[in-house]
Design a protein around this nucleic acid. Structure first.
Lengths: 158, 158
DNA sequence: CAAGATTGAGTCGTCAATCTTT
DNA sequence: AAAGATTGACGACTCAATCTTG
């Protein structure tokens, strides 16, 4: 785009511009591909999958909603909506908390666990194939370092 | 997650797992931060911004809907919905095409251009600050190379 | 029938408001 | 009042269906 007059904005360099657009495109196409396959192999969305993974890794396959929200770094309302949709489909149930009248637990159902196991292998394969296979070990390390650098900078700001 | 028995799935290595989760988190938090600032400084979303940038860069500040969809690599229906919302807010208008009765053009309005110019400097600053400032030149190059590698692999598959 | 484009239904996500329990 | 959680309204995206013109 063209710049407006009289400002001292520091724009992106040409290389940064290019990388930024490529990054956005990669992100979107990767997401689309993953979403589509997950939908096809097990009628799950990526958010569904994230919730199911976390519950399956938890002791007793259940978690307090707050803890789950913190682990996923999701907003409470987003998680609540998500759990409502997943409950409607029988992937999880909600159970009230013993020691805290305000609290609630999300519990993995057998159906939820089954869906997860149905989907997980193909998902792992696809992530490997689409993201990691194309990367050299150095590029993998660089990507990891880049994520870390950006995340800690985000932590400082926000 | 735990693996089911009897399969030969090749899972991700520990390092890949870690990078993948960090990548997902970076992606989401970066998007959230950018969306929020764009909303705050100019009542625009990232998709709005993408459309406005492309129109502003086009000859005469208008594009055929098909061309715009191809440039953005968006599905037609997504773009159509997006244009409807933007038209309702006065950021663009639609004009029918002279030489093809089926065609339509999306045209940047003065309001749309104003919104773009209002938002662009802070957006560029933020992308630089959140993504590029934390990266060394080597990391920038590596990220670019990683995007290219993944994208060309996606091109081969899809 | 192909291509260009729009529409409708359904899911996902955010924000602000709400309700309950501590 | 603060913490835990839910709800409603609205924007964003996908898929399938539709409409119109070539």
């Amino acid at each position: 785009m063209k710049t407006s007059a009289g400002t001292t904005t520091r724009w992106l360099t040409d290389e940064q511009q290019l990388v930024w657009r490529r990054y956005l495109e990669m992100q979107r196409r990767l997401n689309t591909a993953l979403e589509r396959q997950m939908q096809a192999t097990g009628e799950l969305s990526m958010p569904d999958f994230g919730v199911l993974v976390n519950l399956s890794e938890a002791e007793g396959e259940h978690l307090r909603v707050t803890d789950l929200a913190r682990t996923l770094r999701w907003e409470k309302s987003r998680l609540s909506h998500q759990l409502t949709r997943m409950e409607k489909r029988g992937l999880i149930t909600r159970r009230s908390c013993d020691h805290d009248g305000r609290g609630a637990h999300a519990v993995l159902t057998p159906d939820g666990r089954a869906a997860l196991e149905r989907v997980a292998p193909a998902h792992a394969e696809q992530v490997r194939r689409l993201l990691f296979d194309p990367l050299s070990p150095e590029q993998l390390a660089a990507l990891g370092a880049a994520c870390d650098a950006v995340l800690s900078s985000l932590d400082d700001t926000a």
